[in-house]
Design a protein around this nucleic acid. Structure first.
Lengths: 127, 127
DNA sequence: TCGACTTGACTACCGAGGTAATACTACCGC
DNA sequence: GCGGTAGTATTACCTCGGTAGTCAAGTCGA
């Protein structure tokens, strides 16, 4: 059951969550190291983690003087919530409109199209 | 041709843009009036419009001492840019993953499914 | 033991979104 | 001409994301 909460994460926050989802409990240094793109100051990552803990996105425990952080919300919940949020904001909740917009404005490989078609067919049969 | 710019609008900004896209040139009072949800102070709307003009999202001209605002960016550009942005952020640019996520986590009516299937088939034939 | 290094705590600062009060100004009707 | 009204300009404040410096405390190696 996905919680009803709405998540709206910034770029850095999302990147951090992704690290935590992938490598699970991690110290600040580990998170910092695993972040791709421009390297950030240690304190930047630490500060962000603290702010994220305030908002219950992550939690930490102490081990040998180190803070070990882990995600407090699931990938699925966050992804869904953020996707929902955008569909609401941009397409007034109309999912089909959103999907068709994506399909119309983007290149999708034949393979992917085939997969999507299959997906939709499954859905239709289930109904 | 859609401009390359990336738009990330807040809630209010999007609402305002929607009003301007719908009713075209409009005074502050008209925008304020057309905004749904909790009524906002006149000055709130005016301030927001000025900030948005700074960022070239809207422009205004003066008519009888009134500011008449209109959108300076198109619905299509903003929608696409925001959708792209999210696909990038959440699905690392993988469009198909995004679409399939949406399909899997939402109710879509049979009619809509049919429309989507048709859309995909068109795309596949075109390729 | 002492200094370098690690790590967390605290603080600061910027920009943007959002909200609005206050102050000024011009016009309109009496 | 005068006061209300409509409208803009100015200013302020709060939150959040993001970035990071400084400081203090603990740790570990020479």
């Amino acid at each position: 059951m996905s919680s009803q909460r709405t998540y709206r994460l910034g770029d850095l926050q999302l990147k951090i969550m992704r690290v935590l989802w992938q490598i699970a409990p991690a110290s600040v240094a580990e998170v910092q190291e695993k972040l791709d793109g421009e390297p950030l100051a240690y304190t930047t990552v630490a500060t962000m983690l603290r702010k994220m803990e305030d908002r219950h996105l992550v939690r930490h425990c102490e081990q040998q003087r180190k803070f070990i952080y882990e995600a407090a919300v699931s990938d699925a919940d966050v992804t869904q919530s953020m996707a929902d949020d955008l569909v609401d904001r941009l397409f007034e909740g109309n999912m089909a409109a959103a999907v068709s917009h994506l399909l119309q404005t983007h290149e999708v490989s034949p393979d992917e199209l085939a997969r999507l078609e299959q997906l939709i067919r499954q859905r239709r049969n289930r109904a």
